[in-house]
Amino acid sequence: MADVKVTVLAGGVGGARFVRGLRAALESEGADITVVVNTGDDLWLSGVRLQPDIDSILYALAGVNDAERGWGRAGESERVSAELREWGAGWPWFTLGDLDLGTHLARTGWLRDGLSYTQVAERLGSRWPIGVRLLPMTDTEVDTQVVVEDGSRLHFQEWWTRHRAVLRAVRFENPGIDGATPAPGVVEAITGADVVVLAPSNPVVSIGPILSVPGIRGALGDAARVVGVSPIIGGKVVRGMADACLTAIGVETSADAVARHYGQRADGGLLDTWLVAEEDAALAPGLAAEGWDVRVEPLWMTDLERSATLARAAITD
């Protein structure tokens, strides 16, 4: 698969593990890998700009991530967060590691110097030999807001991290996204790829905001081939509270329901091929009867080798 061009739409830990596996699978073949990353999780906190999904993927590719916690840097200290709590600043339940805070400070300084989010991502990615191009979905700030049952609004990070998605969500919104445009290079990366992969990331708050940026869904319609990897294994989410997100938009927590949520390109949806886990093999005949190109693969990314095997399966026609 020499010189193959692959573009991945991704966010969160699942996206980071998949992209790391993809790089490992193709590292000896001169592949061109672009990752379009969700920025709906972004926020301003204590005067600095945080981009959790960008950083999760960056740290994983650089090999400096905290694999046990699933976020932040390995070998962290938390002296600054402790001091912020003493001052009553920031969110006491949202801990920023000192190394991670260095990234946020660098990003914020560059933004205040006039760089775009795309330029900042490029500069961050140049520190380590990460082997892929990271692109934010847009240079526009479109943070995710969660409307809960009593009508109040929370930033996604407050709903997710502080309340652990226990408050029933009614809907998710990205204020300003209707006026956003894809970041430079995003549309070209999608339409110019040999294959585009929707990573096994949260379909609602990781992949959803990317698809909501005007122009990106249309670009997928012009892509050579679009493959999706189920984030649901055996009827359960792999990590986090994606089931609460799916419930809020009326989608069952199952591999076939998420497939139908994305839809087949032949019927005006997004996907040409859908990968489901071996634990969900019983769902494959039903999807196939609906016209899906559905494939059963081992989806657990418990180590780099398994992640690489899955990534190769996803991009193989």
Rank of each mutant, 00 (worst) to 15 (best):
P182Y: 13
L198G: 02
E188H: 14
A199K: 01
D194A: 05
A223Y: 09
T247D: 15
P184T: 10
V205D: 05
V195I: 02
A193N: 07
R217Q: 14
P203C: 12
P184I: 12
G192D: 12
P184E: 09
P184W: 11
N202P: 03
P200M: 02
P209M: 08
V186W: 02
P182K: 08
S201L: 03
A183M: 09
G250M: 05
N202A: 08
V204P: 02
R225N: 01
A244K: 09
L246R: 12
S212H: 10
K236G: 07
C245N: 13
L246Y: 12
A224E: 05
A224N: 01
I210W: 00
N202M: 11
G218S: 14
R239L: 13
C245S: 15
I233L: 15
I249Q: 07
V237C: 12
V186R: 01
P182T: 02
L211R: 07
P231N: 13
V197R: 00
V186T: 07
G215R: 04
I210M: 06
G221M: 12
V197W: 01
V213T: 00
G250K: 06
R217P: 09
A183F: 03
G250Q: 10
L198N: 00
V197F: 09
T191C: 12
A223C: 08
T247S: 14
A219F: 06
P200E: 11
T253E: 11
R225M: 04
L198C: 04
P231M: 02
R239Y: 13
G240S: 14
V196P: 01
I233V: 15
E252G: 00
I233G: 09
A248I: 09
I216D: 03
N202C: 11
G208Q: 01
V205T: 15
G250Y: 05
G228T: 06
P214S: 13
V204D: 06
L246D: 12
P182A: 09
V204K: 06
P203I: 07
G250V: 10
P182Q: 06
D222I: 01
V238E: 14
G234Q: 11
G234Y: 13
A223M: 11
P200I: 07
A183Y: 03
E188Q: 05
R217I: 08
V196R: 00
A242C: 06
V251N: 02
